[in-house]
């Protein structure tokens, strides 16, 4: 702010001789000045490392991890294929494909569930009196107060064989043996839903808060029942929130690492775990890098498809 104020002052003081070109140049300097801090961080913390990862994916793995500076397509090749140890014949890398599929499936399911659970929550908060909304939002952010790892272990305490749920069910005599809840896709799903739900609720709330509730009355007045008001009035109007929330949940779940690691165990890997494996035990940094870039590509394609789809369904007005 201080920067822009100073600059605005400067604009105001500009002598007539300065001319339009000079003013425009100063305005541009202000714009870049405002952007500079974020740009620097992005450059050094995101774009730079990403470039390094991209370069690594085209190199040869070192014997003890790391890379050897000799170009190779092997990393990318092994994202989808594996060589037979004996005759060098090519086979599809089934494990990678199934991990990829599970990741997409679980992320999609988490996003949909978060939407179904988060929508009523956001609506509830948005319809509270203005004074109490802040407290409700505050409650939504409570999960963020503790470390993700601790929260995930806490879930483990609830769902493991000797955990709360099984103990209670056994005590009630509803089951004879503990249910296997840990190390299942369901456990990962529940864990990720819990972790990422606030990221769905907050953008949904932001667009519902702006919703003009008189439009809902107008819907009722024009013979729309509750369901029709939801479908024809509320959902179209809060669509920006739905899109933002879905993106905010889908992307981090696709690359989720901690939750599937703790709740899914070694068997139910997701992409994040597979990548980690290559940089750790696997000692195949080029493959890990290629997998990372693949994840990035999937996210970008998914985003493009989703935004295109959302834009299309937006034009339901009648001609």
């Amino acid at each position: 702010m201080a920067l822009s104020h100073a600059a605005l002052g400067e604009l105001g003081d500009a002598r007539p001789a300065a001319g339009a070109a000079e003013l425009e140049r100063r305005a541009a300097r202000v714009r870049w000045g405002l952007l500079a801090p974020s740009l620097v961080i992005l450059l050094f913390a995101a774009i730079g490392p990403l470039f390094i990862v991209l370069v690594y994916s085209f190199l040869t793995p070192g014997p003890y991890g790391g890379v050897v500076w000799s170009p190779s397509l092997e990393g990318w090749f092994r994202v989808l294929f594996q060589r037979d140890i004996f005759d060098d014949s090519l086979k599809f890398q089934d494990a990678h494909l199934s991990i990829l599929w599970r990741s997409v499936k679980l992320s999609f399911a988490t996003t949909m569930l978060a939407l179904v659970v988060g929508f009523p929550t956001a609506y509830f908060i948005a319809t509270r009196p203005e004074r109490s909304r802040t407290s409700w939002l505050f409650l939504i952010t409570i999960p963020f107060w503790t470390n993700l790892l601790i929260r995930t272990f806490a879930i483990q305490e609830v769902i493991r064989n000797e955990g709360l749920i099984n103990a209670a069910l056994l005590q009630l005599g509803l089951i004879a043996r503990p249910l296997q809840l840990m190390f299942t896709d369901g456990a990962i799903l529940a864990g990720m839903l819990y972790v990422f739900l606030p990221l769905m609720v907050l953008p949904l709330y932001a667009s519902m808060e702006k919703l003009d509730f008189r439009l809902i009355e107008a819907g009722y007045d024009l013979y729309a029942n509750r369901f029709q008001v939801l479908r024809r009035v509320i959902i179209p109007l809060v669509k920006p929130g739905i899109i933002a929330g879905s993106i905010l949940v889908f992307i981090p779940t696709l690359g989720a690492y901690v939750t599937p690691r703790v709740l899914g165990g070694g068997k139910n890997m997701m992409l994040g775990n597979l990548i980690e494996l290559q940089f750790g035990q696997g000692r195949n940094w080029p493959l890990g890098s290629a997998l990372s870039m693949t994840l990035l590509a999937i996210v970008m394609v998914a985003l493009l498809v989703y935004v295109r789809f959302a834009a299309k369904s937006d034009t339901t007005g009648h001609g």
Binding site: R214, E217, A218, G219, V233, P236, L237, G317
Partner: peptide
């Protein structure tokens, strides 16, 4: 009803 602020649906033509 004709509402005071019209309450037209902004997502429709």
């Amino acid at each position: 009803t004709v509402f005071q602020n019209y309450a037209l649906f902004p997502h429709l033509t």
